[in-house]
Design a binder for these strands. Structure first.
Lengths: 240, 240
DNA sequence: ACCTGAACACCGTTCAAGT
DNA sequence: ACCTGAACACCGTTCAAGT
């Protein structure tokens, strides 16, 4: 009457193996993306991802340095879909707008990636480097001096990322959106309570329909303004 | 031979009371700011702040709804120091630059506040509302139409905040900075390993001294470009 | 080389109980 | 009304032990 646990028969063992493939960076990133898409970036913890793979958190550390690296690998995976144009100096403004717009759309489509991008001080992987290289390419091709191109590419990437991050904070659930609208009403009531000269301009703005514009109007406007300001550094000989 | 614990004598009790004043929103926020300045925003947890006040985390919930609200109260406290100008239409560009610069400097001086600001989707407290109202004031005073002023104020605040956030990621410890430099060298080596046509523009940029500019040059440049692009919406009759 | 369970030192928030 | 300890359901990361 031994009380030792019965070991599983060998065919069970191999069945398990084929049902859940070996851990690898690829399977881990895939699981992390699944978790992020379903439950948001906050849920992409080492423990939660490991759970999705039927193992413990410690097992992931053989393939990934830490959580920050796992998040960066998600960003890289998402940016693989980026399509970069061949620079045409006469169309630099449209190309720039389209490229920054595309990176922003990619991040908006996967809420969570904008936050990773913002947290990743130094981009170190091909996907994100490709986006930066392409932006620089368009600017330099238009004859914009390197120093200016460098600063402009940095500012454009930062603004696009911050815009996507802010947009991705907007709750996706019906309940969350109702709560957000409630908070906006709350502050409108608060503003109209105050003496009229406390925040006169916010008050004046409130009389226009609040937050009613088309989703990307804000973003496009800011981009247009910045590109207009940038245009004076382009070389008219190249851009006609 | 009783084993009951001896109660503290009454004068000890009152000595304790004066040494650690009653909890209040003000004392909690002050403690939170102390923790943030000393150990960064990540350390500003309910438990850590409560510990600093000699109590348990649960006690804070009588004064503060949750951690997010505590963070917002830190932001509010920090923005109390903001000085807003009286708009002068002929100096709107300088005033705008100075105001956005000031908000950004405030956030840079207290690493952690930029992250809170970015996470606080809807600003709901006097300090942050004052900054937005002042920005709108300068723009409207220059004759910029309300819709444009709204978008521009939004973009300027977002860029300033994102810039401060990115800057605040830069490690403050000597060891952290060395590590960051090591990572930059790593990616430079990686780039020069690749075929020259993979990231040609990043490679070209690398030959210029990397990250060597004055701290706020990038920021000022982006602001100037945006304001230049904005200028065409100002009313020349007002701004001369 | 790869994987594991257990442990360590943390989280935010709730709740019944006390004053 | 305010405060408390304990509990619940989580974290990231390390490490000795297994295969």
């Amino acid at each position: 009457m031994s009380s030792e646990p019965v070991p599983p028969p060998p065919w069970r063992r191999s069945a398990n193996k084929s049902a859940r493939p070996h851990l690898s960076v690829a399977t881990i990133v895939a699981a992390a993306l699944r978790v992020m898409d379903a439950e948001g970036l906050d849920a992409v913890s080492m423990r939660r991802v490991a759970q999705d793979l039927g193992t413990g958190a410690a097992s992931l550390y053989a393939h990934v340095r830490n959580k920050q690296e796992l998040h960066e690998l998600i960003l890289e995976e998402v940016f693989r879909g980026l399509e970069v144009p061949t620079p045409d100096p006469r169309r630099w403004q449209e190309q720039l707008k389209e490229l920054i717009g595309q990176t922003t759309r990619i991040m908006l489509a996967r809420p969570g990636t904008a936050q990773i991008s913002l947290q990743t001080m130094i981009p170190m992987r091909p996907g994100t480097l490709a986006a930066m290289d392409a932006t620089l390419g368009i600017l330099r091709c238009a004859g914009i001096p390197d120093q200016i191109a460098d600063y402009a590419a940095d500012a454009l990437a930062l603004y696009g990322t911050a815009y996507a991050y802010e947009a991705s904070l907007w709750p996706s659930s019906e309940a969350g959106q109702a709560e957000a609208r409630r908070r906006i009403t709350e502050i409108e009531e608060y503003l109209s309570t105050l003496p009229a000269d406390r925040f006169p301009h916010l008050l004046a703005m409130m009389r226009r329909p609040f937050h009613e514009e088309n989703g990307s109007e804000r973003f496009e406007f800011a981009l247009d303004i910045f590109i207009a300001g940038l245009a004076k550094y382009a070389d008219p000989g190249l851009t006609e």
